[in-house]
Write a protein that binds this DNA or RNA. Structure first.
Lengths: 138, 138
DNA sequence: AAATTAAACGCAACATAGTTGCGTTTGTTT
DNA sequence: AAACAAACGCAACTATGTTGCGTTTAATTT
């Protein structure tokens, strides 16, 4: 299926206008093989106004089309959400992994659900950020 | 045991001078009942130069006296390390929990070790950030 | 106890990140 | 084709974090 048409539908579903900039941003994120760092988005989208890039990212974040993978503090990483994410509920059954060698960040689906319990606390969300050395860099 | 003396020893152990500012910063962090947000440090230490606050925090982070608890993206939180942390090895067997109601961030020791495995990957560090509602706010 | 020295500090300046207001442009609807 | 709300670009602003450098101070040595 044509990505442009798919993204157009995706945006309109969430009551967002399917503008050329949004389609371009989504294409860049989707075509990147892992979670894309903000600095990379800046490089690839130099013709975007700074403010436009921020506002576009925030619009996509708010509507559950993309999500942040904030592994470590240096850069912010963005990746596409799965199909079942909505504005209200992000449902990511995965952890974020960052390779300390190539600095690549990827979303790893977890097969067996990770169970975390804290006494007397109602847990709503669990973010797991893993770092180490990836297959290619070992 | 007197905190001042304890902190003086702690700093000298790590080859850091036990200056009044460092002792004051450590006292503020240690006396806070949970992980203290950066904005709170600024408020309590208005007489610190901005640069001094950053450099002092970084010195303490580098030497493993305090650690960051970067739950969510709004503020950065700092907390004392356990005794067994060194410059080389931070050994935190705990998760960071943030209450979405009172915004308090605390370090929760985990009794049973959390096992995470990713195929073909050498895992070095796992950071777990949990958010939800704490005992007081339920 | 005074001198020495390397670290710590304060200030100025800079770089980047992120936000807000407002006038203009554009996607979508009628 | 017209109308309208959303999206965009620009300017300006705030917050965050860093670097260089001259001055001060903690720790060491004499």
């Amino acid at each position: 299926m044509d990505l442009e048409i798919k993204f157009t539908d995706l945006l309109r579903d969430r009551n967002l206008k399917a503008t050329p900039k949004r389609l371009e941003l989504l294409t860049v994120i989707a075509n990147y093989n892992s979670a894309i760092p903000y600095s990379e988005l800046q490089k690839k989208l130099k013709h975007f106004d700074r403010v436009t890039l921020y506002r576009t990212l925030n619009a996509l974040l708010d509507s559950g089309i993309i999500h942040k993978a904030s592994v470590s503090t240096d850069d912010t990483y963005y990746a596409m959400c799965k199909e079942y994410c909505t504005t209200e509920c992000h449902n990511h059954k995965h952890v974020h992994f960052k390779c300390v060698e190539c600095l690549e960040v990827s979303c790893v689906d977890t097969t067996n659900t990770i169970q975390i319990q804290i006494p007397n606390v109602k847990i709503q969300q669990v973010d797991i950020e893993v770092s180490g050395v990836c297959e290619k860099c070992i």
